[in-house]
Design a protein around this nucleic acid. Structure first.
Length: 492
RNA sequence: CGGGGUGUAGCUUAGUCCGGUUAAAGUGCUGGUCUGGGGGACCAGAGAUCGGUGGUUCGAAUCCACUUACCCCGACCA
């Protein structure tokens, strides 16, 4: 393990890269732009999956799996969607290798094995799924279809960063079909609420829910809703999206159903997704210069117990003392690790578990054995306290609950302090450069102005928040009339 | 994909400009002794065909060409 001492202050992106590798979350692979998610990092992703999956099921969805490959002809059916992703598609053109006649022991692509039709490696699955739904839907009785899939997708990115943007990433994509527009719109909104609630209660990340502007919208959608988070360096991160797809895919794939009245109509669609990018959000929202900070609801190990001892006999005594406590904690659903490795010193273990973000550390040594106490340290605030062993399970459980709330509140406080109302162009640039964070400002509603602002400042409109206050004003850049403020920020 | 930078032991790097015997250090690793309440100390060891391929040369980590990976900036993007 390398103990790099780069702080967030010194070099935020270096700090991020070091943390991802040093905390054993992920590493670069020998495939360009692709990462290896290591067991500890994957355990966190699995927790996210479990929590989300439960919420999807509770809202009536079922999981299914669709192919990795999409025939080109299907892919191009919905034009806007195809165009939006065309530049970053991996394409399979051949299906066989053969021994290279010119180079001993090497293989080459068999030129005789060219595919009739190229296969696109899915950058998203609307095409293959809507092509399938066509066969599933005849009548209003077949609707709604509420399906989700956990999958990998490939987007051939030019510039990659672990978790935030990789060529291959893991995600879930929900794809639903509805008889009415109203129902599809409600589904789109419902799933965004699921994401927001998950982000707040599990990831402990506050989000802003809103609508994307036309230029930030998903290719092929009529409307894109999003949750936006704010990272510690003042940049925004899109954490999840939910799209109202209208009848665009139904029309492209000719998916009609017979209504109660016996008429033919196109079905209405939604899609929604979050990805391993959430790992990046998690890291950049809570972690500090000592390493990862995990909210208890997401930590693969919630409590680590470090024995302090001299000689095996003392370790035995401590183990015997802790054994029933560990059992009781586990009975309450708390994940506990008793770090009895004799190969490392306590100080080393302290630092290692801090780096990995374990919420609570319990240290117990001979002094504690005498006094009937333990030392309890919390990762987020680094506070240490000596607690009586009596009823320790209850105290730990309550502390975990309190930490979950406080980690969220601390992120919320940072976020709220970084939403700045701005009324002049000079102020806009000043806040963007120095204070950073979200800027709430008037915008004349045109894509031209949005583009111009992006070109000049790198700031984009992150979203138009839900239930936005209607307030007449003048566009920050053009001075044209505006009816509400929107949120700008530099973003990942 | 355009511009810049970096690849030397598991990791972090020195050496490269100005070619010359056996490639250096810290950390990590292995064994041992002492240790143990915040990344331990000492002793002994193992570990590198210097990112890859080709070239120049009596001789290449060092010079040249190509290539590949990563990092930073830009365009693009979840």
């Amino acid at each position: 393990m390398a103990f790099d001492k780069v702080t967030r202050e010194q070099d935020y992106s270096k700090w991020y890269n070091n943390l991802v590798e040093d905390a054993d979350l992920a590493q670069h692979s020998s495939v360009r732009g692709c990462m290896v998610i290591k067991p500890y990092g994957y355990a966190i992703w699995e927790k996210m999956q479990q929590e989300l999956d439960r919420r999807f099921k509770e809202t009536g969805h079922q999981n299914a799996y669709f192919p990795l490959f999409v025939p080109k002809s299907l892919f191009e059916a919905e034009e806007k969607n195809a165009e939006g992703f065309a530049k970053e598609c991996a394409v399979v053109t051949h299906y066989r290798l053969e021994s290279d006649p010119d180079k001993e022991g090497k293989l080459r692509v068999d030129p005789k094995a060219k595919l009739e039709e190229e296969l696109i490696v899915r950058p998203t699955s609307e095409a293959i799924i809507w092509n399938t739904y066509k066969g599933w839907i005849q009548s209003y009785r077949d609707l709604p279809i509420l399906v989700n899939q956990w999958a990998n997708v490939v987007r051939w990115e030019m510039r990659t960063r672990l978790f935030l943007r990789t060529a291959e990433f893991l995600w879930q994509e929900g794809h639903t079909a509805h008889a009415t527009k109203k129902e599809a719109v409600e589904e789109t909104r419902q799933m965004l609420e699921v994401y927001a609630e998950f982000a707040e209660t599990v990831l402990a990340i506050p989000t802003i829910k809103g609508t994307k502007t036309e230029s930030e919208r998903f290719a092929g959608a009529d409307d894109t809703l999003c949750i936006e988070g704010l990272m510690q360096d003042g940049k925004a991160l899109q954490m999840g999206t939910s799209h109202f797809l209208g009848q665009n895919f139904a029309k492209a794939f000719d998916v009609k159903y017979t209504t109660k009245e016996g008429k033919q109509d196109y079905v209405w669609a939604t899609s929604w997704g979050v990805s391993t990018r959430l790992m990046g959000a998690l890291i950049m929202t809570h972690s500090d210069d000592e390493g990862l900070v995990l909210p208890p609801n997401l930590a693969p190990i919630q409590v680590v117990i470090v024995p302090i001892y001299r000689g095996m006999e003392q370790l035995e005594t401590i183990s015997d003392r802790m054994e029933p406590i560990i059992k009781n904690l586990r009975k309450r659903g708390i994940t506990v690790k008793f770090d009895n490795r004799d190969t490392h010193k306590p100080g080393y273990k302290f630092a290692e578990w801090e780096l990995k973000g374990v919420p609570i550390r319990i240290a117990i040594g001979p002094r504690d054995l005498e006094n009937g106490t333990v030392e309890v340290a919390r990762r987020d605030t680094k506070e240490k306290q000596v607690l009586e062993l009596t009823d320790i399970e209850n105290k730990i459980e309550h502390l975990l609950e309190a930490m979950q709330k406080e980690i969220y509140l601390s992120a919320l406080n940072f976020r709220d302090n970084h939403i700045t109302n701005v009324n002049t162009w000079d102020e806009f640039k000043e806040v963007l450069e120095n204070k950073t964070g979200f800027i709430s400002a008037h915008w004349d509603g045109t894509a031209e102005t949005e583009d111009k602002i992006k070109e000049l400042t790198k700031a984009t409109i992150r979203c138009i928040p839900f239930d936005n206050k209607q307030e007449p004003g003048e566009c920050i850049y053009t001075g044209n009339p505006s009816k509400e403020r929107v949120l700008f920020a530099k973003a990942y």
